[in-house]
Amino acid sequence: PTPPYLKWAESLHSLLDDQDGIHLFRTFLKQEECADMLDFWFACSGFRKQEANEGNEKMLKLAKAIYKKYILDNNGIVSRQIKPATKSFIKDCVMKLHIDPAMFDQAQTEIQTMMEENTYPLFLKSDIYLEYT
């Protein structure tokens, strides 16, 4: 069978589908001071997944927490990668209490594209990954 670390090189999704892969990628991103991008990506997925079994109040609290931590500060690594229109859309949702399971989808896609084009290829060439393999 293909060893997991070879699968990680196939696509970002193969990497993010494996616990050890996530751990190593996060170590790399931490070194590059952009681990928040990965945490944000998972927070968006988690947010979307929770809607079925969580009450509205918890969803609102969570949406506010994600907004505050990653989007509100314009100098944050995540906030800098998200388009202004996407940020105002999320801000609007939070302010008007329009909590929707898909409200972070566009922002997540923008961060994912950034990782696919930038940090993920760098990771595959990094010492951290090469030493691991």
Binding site: Q19, F42, C44, K61
Partner: peptide, 20 residues
């Protein structure tokens, strides 16, 4: 009551793949 950070951490963990 969960603090915001706990809530966020719980949300992030819920999206991670389970150990194979």
């Amino acid at each position: 009551i969960d603090s915001e950070d706990d809530l966020l951490q719980e949300c992030i963990s819920s999206a991670m793949p389970k150990k194979k």
